[in-house]
Amino acid sequence: MNLFDPPKLVKGIYIRFGENPFVLLSLFSCQAIKQNWTQQEIANVLSKAKKGNYMHLIKTLQAHIHK
């Protein structure tokens, strides 16, 4: 479900289920900025994550995080 080919991943984030969606989106975007992602790449992931329910948001972010 990663939007990029080859897959692009952010390192150093742990997604906690039950956390406020705004906090999760902010954590992801801040860490992606630190790892030199472009604004367009970040916007694509955030837009996709916000298009569904909470579980969709979690799954989309997890697909873009290095475990």
Rank of each mutant, 00 (worst) to 15 (best):
I58W: 03
L25Q: 13
L25W: 03
A32Y: 11
H66I: 05
N44M: 13
Q39E: 15
Q31W: 00
L3Y: 01
K11F: 07
K67E: 09
D5Q: 10
P6V: 03
A63C: 10
I65Y: 03
M55C: 08
I42V: 12
L57H: 07
K51G: 11
A32T: 11
N44R: 14
Q40W: 01
W37F: 13
P6T: 06
N44I: 02
I33L: 14
A32S: 10
K51V: 01
R16S: 09
P6H: 06
P21Q: 12
Q39Y: 08
K67T: 05
E41N: 04
H64A: 08
T38E: 03
N53V: 00
A49M: 04
K67D: 06
F17L: 14
I33W: 06
L27T: 01
K67Q: 11
I65S: 11
N53G: 15
S29V: 03
S29I: 04
T60F: 00
N44F: 06
S29Q: 14
P7A: 08
L25P: 03
L9E: 08
I58G: 00
I42H: 04
Q40H: 12
V23S: 12
Y14S: 15
G52T: 03
H64C: 09
G12P: 06
L9V: 10
K11L: 01
M1Q: 09
K34Y: 09
Q35R: 02
S47G: 12
I15M: 10
F28D: 11
G12M: 06
L3T: 00
G12N: 05
I65W: 07
